[in-house]
Computed example of a mutant assay.
Amino acid sequence: MRHFENFPEGDVHELGSTRLTSEDIIGYARSWDPMPFHLDPVVARTSPFGGLVASGWHTGAVVMGQFVRALLADSSCQGSYGMDEVRFLRPVRPGDELRGRATVEAAAPHPRRPGIGTVRFVVEADNQRGEPVYRMRTRLLFGCVPAEAGAGGTARV
C-alpha cells in the first residue's frame, strides 16, 4: 500500500495507456456530452474538428481511471480537494491511445491533521504521437505510514 511518504516531490508515475474507439467516444457522448461532433461522424466532418472527437470530459475520465488503477486504488488516499487547471490540449480521435502520467509537484504534511499528508500531482496524457492532449492539477490527501510500520510501508506483525 502506498502512503504519503511514497510520493516524494519530482517523482513521475506512468499510468498506462488506453486506446479509444469510435464506439467508446459515441457511447460516452450519448450519456454525458451529447454534442453532435462527439456523436455523429458525418456531422462531425463539418465541425471545426473535421471529424469525430472525444469529449474532453471523456478524456479526463479515461486518464482519471488510469490514475486510480495505477496509483490510488492501492493507497491510503483519503480524497481530493478537487482539480485545478483542467486543460483539453488537443482533440482525441478514434484510434488515439492515451498515455497517462502523474508527476508529484509538491508534498507536505497536512498543517492541521497529524498523520495526513497532501500531495499535489500534475496529471497529463499524450497521444500515441507524443502530443499532449490533457493536463490537470489535483491535490490529494494520503495517510502517513503508521508508526509501527517498517520502511516499506507495511505494518509489522
Score class of each variant (00 low, 15 high):
3 H>R: 13
3 H>Q: 08
4 F>A: 06
4 F>M: 06
5 E>M: 06
5 E>R: 05
5 E>I: 02
6 N>C: 14
6 N>L: 08
8 P>S: 09
10 G>R: 07
11 D>C: 13
11 D>Y: 06
14 E>K: 12
15 L>W: 01
15 L>T: 01
16 G>V: 01
17 S>E: 15
17 S>T: 13
19 R>Q: 15
19 R>W: 09
22 S>Y: 04
22 S>E: 15
23 E>N: 05
23 E>S: 05
25 I>E: 01
25 I>K: 00
25 I>S: 02
25 I>N: 00
26 I>F: 00
27 G>W: 00
28 Y>F: 15
28 Y>P: 00
29 A>T: 03
31 S>I: 06
31 S>Y: 02
33 D>M: 06
34 P>T: 03
34 P>E: 05
36 P>T: 10
37 F>D: 01
37 F>I: 02
37 F>L: 05
39 L>P: 00
39 L>R: 00
40 D>P: 04
40 D>G: 07
40 D>K: 08
41 P>L: 07
41 P>F: 06
41 P>M: 10
42 V>F: 08
42 V>L: 13
43 V>W: 10
43 V>C: 07
43 V>L: 14
44 A>D: 04
44 A>Q: 02
44 A>E: 03
45 R>Y: 08
47 S>I: 10
48 P>Y: 09
48 P>S: 13
48 P>C: 11
48 P>R: 14
48 P>E: 13
49 F>C: 10
50 G>F: 11
50 G>T: 11
50 G>I: 11
50 G>L: 09
51 G>D: 07
51 G>N: 09
53 V>R: 01
53 V>A: 06
53 V>M: 09
53 V>W: 03
54 A>F: 05
54 A>H: 06
55 S>H: 04
55 S>T: 07
57 W>D: 05
58 H>P: 01
60 G>S: 12
60 G>A: 14
61 A>Y: 01
61 A>G: 11
62 V>D: 00
63 V>T: 06
64 M>I: 10
67 F>L: 08
67 F>V: 01
70 A>N: 04
70 A>K: 02
70 A>C: 07
70 A>R: 05
71 L>R: 04
72 L>S: 05
72 L>C: 07
72 L>I: 13
72 L>Y: 03
72 L>Q: 03
73 A>M: 13
74 D>Q: 15
75 S>T: 08
75 S>E: 07
75 S>L: 09
76 S>Q: 07
76 S>A: 14
79 G>C: 09
80 S>R: 05
80 S>N: 09
81 Y>W: 14
81 Y>F: 15
83 M>T: 14
84 D>N: 14
84 D>V: 08
85 E>R: 14
85 E>F: 07
85 E>L: 11
86 V>I: 15
86 V>R: 02
87 R>E: 12
88 F>L: 13
88 F>T: 07
90 R>M: 12
90 R>F: 13
91 P>K: 09
93 R>S: 11
93 R>M: 10
93 R>P: 04
